[in-house]
Design a protein around this nucleic acid. Structure first.
Lengths: 266, 266
DNA sequence: AGCGTTCACTGGTATATACCACTCGCGACT
DNA sequence: AGTCGCGAGTGGTATATACCAGTGAACGCT
């Protein structure tokens, strides 16, 4: 095992060595990584150093820690299309993954009881009611994302009586004839806060994408404010601009088939 | 200093304690964090544990490590609008930041010498020439992003003779009357590989956004393939859909003013 | 055969220690 | 007054060690 000598950090050279093996396919997805103790004795380093090497791989999403069961080469990431908002169910199915949703919370509260951003973005007074819908999206039973959405309750009176496991945008369209024509999204790469780790069933501090979204209808009325958390270790995100946003879009599937890894100076 | 007791991990409780102080403004941006050794003795823990606490904050982007000079509360993140591709210069100026660009590389090589993705996405044969343009974008002299772009050279013969410090999309428009009408972007949150750390002037393993982009013109011809790396610790990303993509767009500035932090179960 | 229990092994956390290279400010020297 | 050099302090890395709680397979028992 010759390690590149230009980076003096031992843990990073070991990480790179594994990275190459994983990308080359020598270590196929699902195969176990040697235990930290085994790595340490194999390379003649301390366990803490071996652990840091694996930490790098885990945070890059190349490797998956399964608690006290071991560490394994990560399965390929699923594709998440930002632009086709409603089609998550269909998207996952097309990738051979069984999608599902949990409704963690569905209630109506005054805007004043929520944090001020909600009322401000939805342009509501503190006493006006807001539907709060928290959902967990899963693929093959594995939690992939947490979605926390807020809707102006006066506008969508019986929203919470609908099947919230389905597409909420679909409900807005069919029941209220409301369509989002403009959306503003903020995307922030960060690490999973410990407070949300339990709901996602992972450890804290995995890389995640935080998305804050506001959507307006054709009249400029805000219809949704949402804060989502997407697992970065299991998902790759796709945005298509200027293309037809509906339809099967097999071009996208073809394109996203394998464009990743390697990059600037990499 | 009472630390929440529901999380048994000491380093995470200390990190949370600092997070609260930073969000509350008790620790203003730019102010120094106690040194690892000071933290260790203050809390009666080992330095390694203190270091891990600060690591969490650094990876969340709340705190900025400045090598051996100390660790400081991070300045607020800059806003990066994905949708208005060409307007970076203007965007940064509006935030009171002086923008600049370095051209790290500008040459023309056969597609076959580059990795296969480039030729495939640009639909070129291995012997056809490709312009390779690597740029570094800076704000106030601080590197913010690396952009690695590839263009079909036959289509844009003298592209490299233009001023590549300016907007390349602007050059395509004015010199070749070519406009991207469709773009496909893949967004992947990950950590900065060591090979790119030097070019960004940061340590490796900070959270970054990796973006792979392909753009087509009105005739469906690919005009650009690009792989970018954006610093996640200094930037917040914004995507506006369905809105006018040009103009001063003061609505966006207003909206993005302070919508962040806190989220699902947070 | 089927079941339950045990136990080696795993990752997660924490400590104490050490050395290095670099920064920055203080003080001495010109 | 200006400059230079040094040294205390910093983060970055690495080691050796320890304990805990959960996993999962081997093993023994019924």
């Amino acid at each position: 095992m010759t390690l590149a000598a230009d980076d003096p950090a031992v843990y990073r050279r070991i990480a790179r060595s594994f990275e190459q093996q994983i990308r080359a396919g020598t270590l196929p997805p699902g195969s176990p990584i040697p235990s930290e103790r085994a790595l340490a004795s194999e390379y003649g380093i301390s366990r803490m150093t071996a652990r840091r090497a694996i930490d790098v791989l885990a945070q890059r999403g190349l490797v998956e820690r399964r608690g006290r069961a071991g560490t394994f080469v990560a399965r390929p990431k699923l594709i998440w299309d930002f632009t086709s908002v409603a089609g998550l169910h269909e998207q996952l199915s097309r990738q051979g993954v069984v999608p599902s949703s949990d409704v963690l919370r569905a209630e109506t509260v005054p805007a004043g009881e929520l944090d001020p951003d909600v009322g401000r973005m939805l342009e509501l007074e503190p006493d006006q009611p807001v539907h709060v819908v928290c959902r967990r999206r899963l693929g093959d039973g594995e939690p992939l994302a947490l979605e926390e959405s807020y809707f102006p309750a006066r506008r969508f009176p019986d929203l919470l009586q609908q099947d919230l496991g389905a597409s909420i945008y679909g409900i807005l369209a069919t029941c209220y004839s409301v369509h989002p024509v403009r959306a503003h999204q903020e995307i922030e790469p960060t690490l999973l806060p410990a407070s949300a780790a339990a709901a996602l069933g992972t450890g804290p501090d995995i890389p995640v994408l935080r998305v804050t979204r506001t959507a307006w209808d054709a009249f400029g009325q805000p219809i949704e404010f949402a804060r989502d958390i997407y697992r970065g270790d299991r998902l790759r995100f796709v945005a298509e601009t200027g293309a037809p946003t509906s339809g099967s879009n097999e071009a996208m599937t073809r394109l996203t088939h394998r464009i990743h890894e390697r990059g600037p100076t990499g």
